[in-house]
Design a protein around this nucleic acid. Structure first.
Lengths: 243, 243
DNA sequence: CAGTGGTCTAGACCACCTA
DNA sequence: AGGTGGTCTAGACCACTGC
């Protein structure tokens, strides 16, 4: 378990700029100081400032115009997520303007189904640990999440596991693994009986289903998650910066 | 109309590396040459090589391990899209292993509905040009796309417009506008009568609906598109690099 | 310990936009 | 013409990994 390491300078610059956009110091549609001015102000090189600005631009927070300047995106509030935080469900809920909370439904150990074994490169019957969680937007259930992790990867006693954590931290703390990338299938589906016991609303409606497979640094699958997403309440809207 | 400009050096490096990954020179799961070796080989600075590698890493093509090396992602073929090309429908179809083709259904001028006027910041009744197109995967219709653009933005005769182009090029060539960013809503829906006349399969099934709003450099909306997406045929699966 | 990727600097030149 | 962002260089030091 590592200590928190000091953030990089460009990350700190990024956070300061983000804060200024949020608090209105840099206001929507208006120009922010030039790269040279920012590098002077912070006492860092222009390259470092550019690293920070590139991250903000990738997330759609700012718009850069060669020969003219850098401007705050005035429409960013129309979106609930961007491509950097798509699978941070808490941020997704709060981006929709709700207060988020999580209820841990269960942590269970079960043998893998055939599909799970296929996805996770295991034999059917190998033991999996399932984290079933319910995400709320202002007291209203909106996402039903089921994440399955091979029991063989567990490095700490199952009792110690805090199911309320972000999946990244669950892996770091209890499995001593680092996630390298994730592949997600986005599908439409009819709401099933299981989700319907938790979600409000009529029975026959459609939902989004986000199937996520997490992979480690060695290209091997670490976890498989199925997320039922009530898109009648929660908008999944993404900002994409244009190349 | 600008001439094609010479690509940047880092872009050329990026393309060479991508080509080597595709043709197997750098094979899945294996290590590629270090940054210093690449900068020596191409005769460019290490920073330039890093720019190219950063793009490949963001798209999930490679995995970088500090203190160890850079490796080709062995699972990339499981995904049909990444966060850089999500709205390139042609690439999405081909990423699923199909041959893609586009049929232009109609180009029509119509007054804006109330919803369209709201999204595009117009008055209801203002004239819109609708491009209705059908995307095929191996002769099978999979995406029904309807893009609406305010007629007032058109700078060339409507007859000249080639509806088969990418939306980016339609804007550049006929509207003299540059897209700065896009906001997309992903929703589930029942297949409607209109889409069902084009898509094969049963009537009662669900589809994905991708509602895209394109914005210009001045933060004003340029176009609004509704894409009905047959996810029973076409998988929408994304690679996401982990931070 | 040697080699890798991660960060940062100081400076240069270019392409582009506005005036 | 002057200022902006876009690209590139040559060099430095650091953090991390595997041997």
């Amino acid at each position: 378990m590592n200590l928190i390491q000091t953030r990089s300078v460009s990350n700190q610059v990024d956070e300061i700029l983000l804060e200024r956009i949020r608090d209105g110091t840099y206001s929507p549609g208006n120009r922010i100081p030039s790269e040279s001015e920012l590098s002077d102000e912070f006492g860092v090189s222009r390259a470092t400032v550019r690293t920070a600005l590139a991250k903000l631009a990738a997330n759609g927070m700012i718009i850069r115009k060669q020969g003219n300047g850098t401007f705050v995106n005035a429409r960013i509030k129309d979106a609930s997520a961007h491509f950097g935080n798509l699978w941070d469900l808490v941020q997704l809920i709060e981006g929709n303007g709700y207060k988020s909370s999580i209820r841990l439904l269960s942590i269970e150990q079960k043998p893998a189904t055939e599909k799970e074994a296929l996805v996770l490169a295991l034999e059917p019957g190998d033991e999996l640990i399932h984290f079933r969680r319910l995400f709320y937007a202002d007291q209203r259930a909106v996402i039903l999440a089921d994440n399955a992790i091979p029991a063989i990867l567990l490095r700490e006693p199952l009792e110690k596991v805090d199911g309320g954590l972000h999946i990244r931290d669950i892996f770091k703390n209890y499995f001593h693994q680092k996630i390298a990338f994730a592949i997600t299938d986005i599908r439409s589906a009819m709401i099933d009986a299981d989700a319907h016991t938790y979600f409000e609303g009529e029975a026959g409606r459609t939902i989004l289903q986000l199937d996520v497979t997490f992979y480690g640094m060695n290209n091997l699958p670490l976890a498989y998650g199925v997320n039922d997403f009530d898109d009648s309440i929660l908008r999944l809207s993404l900002v994409q910066a244009w190349s």
